[in-house]
């Protein structure tokens, strides 16, 4: 059985080291917060200037001055701090952020990331903080379905969409397998309802089976 979005979020959460400083991208990565253990000590960073971000705000908690990067109202946890945008991005670029989790259109076998533009001629370009996060965080985890709606793999020999960052992705969490991007190639860490042979056939890039398979 392939994984649901919730199960993917749970698996990503399991791989975040205790005490890590983590940035969750907009959309599916936001769900990872629901599966972090309360005692994990993981501190969430939001690029609009906060460490120690709490869960989404509801009812009377909603404060227009307290939002996440997706501009949704959130709460603050004890130990939270606020800082301006230049400090927030210096924090990433300076290598202080342990993990960032983002969605992707494509990831290449080398760990190149494409997640900001499909390159369509009529698209309005908008990058936000994706390029800064991609090259700034110590580890970049990608969450995506392995195959696009047309069945084409999104883990590819070379990205055909415009890049967000070069050789920056370390892990790719998909609905049918988890991959580690390593210097000697892409390793299959875990599979869900698919065999490694099937993966190799359908993905079309060399894959290194996990030593435990």
């Amino acid at each position: 059985m392939s994984l649901s979005r919730e199960q993917m979020a749970e698996i990503v959460a399991r791989d975040i080291p205790d005490g890590a400083y983590v940035n969750l991208g907009i959309g599916q990565p936001t769900m990872v917060a629901d599966y972090l253990r309360p005692d994990s000590g993981v501190v969430l960073h939001t690029e609009n200037g906060m460490l120690g971000m709490g869960r989404p705000a509801i009812g009377d908690e909603i404060d227009p001055d307290l939002t996440n990067a997706g501009k949704q109202p959130v709460t603050e946890l004890p130990g939270a701090s606020y800082f301006h945008h230049a400090d927030s991005f210096a924090m990433m670029r300076g290598g202080h952020l342990d993990v960032c989790i983002m969605g992707a259109f494509q990831v290449s076998a080398r760990g190149d990331l494409a997640n900001w533009s499909t390159g369509a001629p009529d698209a309005i370009p908008a990058v936000g903080g994706a390029m800064d996060l991609a090259i700034g965080a110590k580890q970049v985890f990608v969450m995506m379905s392995l195959f696009a709606k047309d069945g084409k793999p999104k883990l590819v020999p070379e990205c055909t969409y415009p890049l967000t960052g070069r050789a920056c992705v370390s892990r790719v969490y998909t609905d049918v397998a988890t991959f580690a991007v390593e210097p000697d190639g892409v390793r299959v860490v875990e599979t869900f309802g698919i065999t490694v042979d099937e993966l190799i056939t359908r993905v079309g890039i060399p894959l290194v089976p996990s030593p435990f398979d």
Partner: peptide
């Protein structure tokens, strides 16, 4: 933008701040 009535320079958020 689609009507060609405004120019756009897209800058990554961290580069914009810096």
């Amino acid at each position: 933008y689609r009507a060609g009535q405004i120019e756009l320079e897209v800058v990554p958020q961290g580069n914009l701040a810096e």
